[in-house]
Computed example of a mutant assay.
Amino acid sequence: MSGELSPQAAPSEQGYEGALRPATLAEFVGQSKVRRQLGLLLDAATLRQHTPDHILLAGPPGLGKTTLSMIVASELDKPLHQTSGPAIQHAGDLAAVLSALTPGEVLFIDEIHRMARSAEEMLYLAMEDFKIDIMVGKGAGATSVPLELSPFTLVGATTRAGLLPNPLRDRFGFTAHLEFYSDDELSSVIRRAARLLEFDISDQGVEEIAGRSRGTPRIANRLLRRVRDYCLVHETPGDTESVRAALTLYDVDQHGLDRLDREVLAAVVERFGGGPVGLSNLAVSVGEEAETIEAVVEPFLVRAGLLTRTSRGRVATRLGWQHVGAEIPEHLFSV
């Protein structure tokens, strides 16, 4: 069957994800202020023929931190080395990465707040003076050997900027705080991705996906691919009806809540009377890790006005009760 793609030739989901990433700042949708600031930083460094200042990208997952790091390397026409904080658990791990960098290379460390403390302390000197001290030997006979590094630009990404120690945060010359996207910005992201995927989707279908994407381009692109699959299998056009049917199939409601979001909200309302309820009890009640609830589910529910955090625990708002479809006890919200 010569007309079919072989498994090697067929693009994977990871391949699609990479193909949807913008390659330049001009192609990057949203974060207009950050794009202008970053563009100025890179243009100035190019004119001065110097390595740009180190860059810290802070914000929730899925807003484009990794993509921006790739764009920095592309705009500078320099290679990119990618690693992550959890992968650097010893100073030696970091020393191996830093010593292998070429002049002007861009080093991207994702979740940089999760680096080991010993590696953070080594990074201080590397960021300021482009050198590190390596301990040779053990015990009383150990000696410190200085190692000169090639000038590089560090791009650090974090979803928890408050966990970065001040000495590390202060060594970044530019800090960008990425914000959630508006529905209009997400619609632009979806239209661009649909063109690249050669998927014909109506304007109403685009708006439907944008409204359920939680202000996050990564989620918008993922939902678009699921809608494309649905339309392909069911041989339907990319209209509003098909989009709604596909997203219903994948448990994404009209506000962007998925199965776990609804389970958490329902637990607060139905099992704990609207709250307050502590994080550990809430996590046990839905069978999830507390870290997942705190880092993934809770921020969106709070931002959507469905849940609030108090000193005593999590409390469902009036909108939260309405979303679950439960009868609202008036004494909870009486003026």
Rank of each mutant, 00 (worst) to 15 (best):
D170Q: 05
L164V: 06
R160N: 12
F174G: 00
M135D: 01
S144P: 01
L147V: 15
T153P: 02
V155H: 12
E148P: 00
S150W: 01
V145A: 08
A142G: 11
R171V: 00
I134Q: 10
P167K: 11
F174M: 15
T159R: 03
D133I: 12
D170K: 03
R171H: 05
L149A: 05
G162Y: 05
T175H: 11
P146Q: 02
G173L: 01
L163A: 15
F174A: 12
T153L: 05
F152G: 08
T159Q: 04
A142Y: 10
A176F: 13
K138G: 07
L147N: 06
L154K: 05
L164K: 04
A142K: 05
P167M: 07
T175S: 10
G139D: 06
R171L: 00
H177Y: 10
K138Y: 08
F172T: 03
L168G: 04
G162W: 01
R169E: 08
L147A: 12
R171K: 11
A161C: 02
D170I: 00
E148N: 12
G139S: 09
I134A: 01
A176I: 07
I134H: 02
T143P: 00
T158W: 10
M135Y: 08
N166P: 11
A142Q: 11
T159E: 02
V136H: 08
A161R: 10
E148T: 14
F174C: 02
N166G: 02
I134F: 04
G156N: 05
I134R: 13
L149P: 13
G137S: 03
S150Q: 15
M135S: 14
T143D: 08
R160M: 09
F172L: 01
F152D: 03
G156A: 02
G139P: 10
S144E: 11
V145R: 14
F174W: 12
M135G: 02
P146H: 01
L168T: 07
T175D: 01
N166Q: 15
F152K: 09
T158K: 07
T153I: 04
P146G: 04
D170N: 13
S144H: 06
L168I: 14
I134K: 13
N166S: 14
G173Q: 10
A142P: 11
T175V: 14
H177M: 10
G141I: 00
R171W: 06
V155C: 15
